Computed example of a mutant assay.
Amino acid sequence: MTEKTCAACDCPLDADVIRVTIAGKIVEVCCEECAKALNEAHASATDQGA
């Protein structure tokens, strides 16, 4: 079985995953800090053209 890892930091995921929607896709992260980091990175990447 393949072990799932955090989309932000590659740490192994346990039963307490947090699901975050980024660009219409749901990704799983291990903690609130990683969720916030992904949201900030996505916002920064999409604001490049503004």
Rank of each mutant, 00 (worst) to 15 (best):
T2Y: 09
P12N: 08
A23E: 10
T5Y: 03
T46A: 09
C9W: 04
D47F: 00
N39L: 13
E40D: 14
K36P: 01
I22E: 02
L13T: 01
I26T: 14
A15H: 10
L13N: 01
R19K: 13
I18E: 06
R19M: 06
I26P: 06
I26H: 08
A15T: 06
L13M: 03
I26Y: 03
K25F: 04
I18F: 07
V17K: 15
D47T: 05
L38V: 04
I18C: 01
M1F: 13
T5V: 15
A35F: 00
A7R: 06
V17L: 13
H42Y: 14
D14H: 11
K4S: 10
P12Q: 03
A41G: 03
K36N: 06
C31K: 01
M1A: 12
D47S: 14
A15F: 06
A35S: 10
K36L: 08
T46C: 10
A37S: 11
A23M: 08
K25P: 02
E28M: 12
E32S: 12
I22S: 03
E33D: 15
A8H: 11
N39F: 02
V27C: 06
C9M: 04
T5G: 10
I22P: 01
C30K: 02
R19A: 11
T5K: 15
T5I: 13
A15R: 08
K4I: 00
I18Y: 05
E32T: 12
I22D: 01
C30Y: 03
V29G: 01
V27K: 06
D47R: 08
E28C: 13
I26Q: 14
A15I: 09
A43C: 08
E40C: 05
D10Q: 14
A15D: 10
V20S: 07
A37L: 12
L13H: 00
M1W: 15
K4V: 00
S44K: 15
D47G: 00
D14L: 05
A37P: 04
T5A: 13
A50M: 08
G49C: 11
L38R: 06
A8I: 00
C31L: 06
A23H: 08
T2C: 09
D14W: 03
D16C: 07
D47P: 03
I18V: 06
A43N: 10
Q48L: 15
M1K: 14
A23P: 00
N39H: 12
E33N: 12
T5R: 15
T21L: 07
G24E: 07
E40Q: 13
C30Q: 00
T46E: 14
A37Q: 08
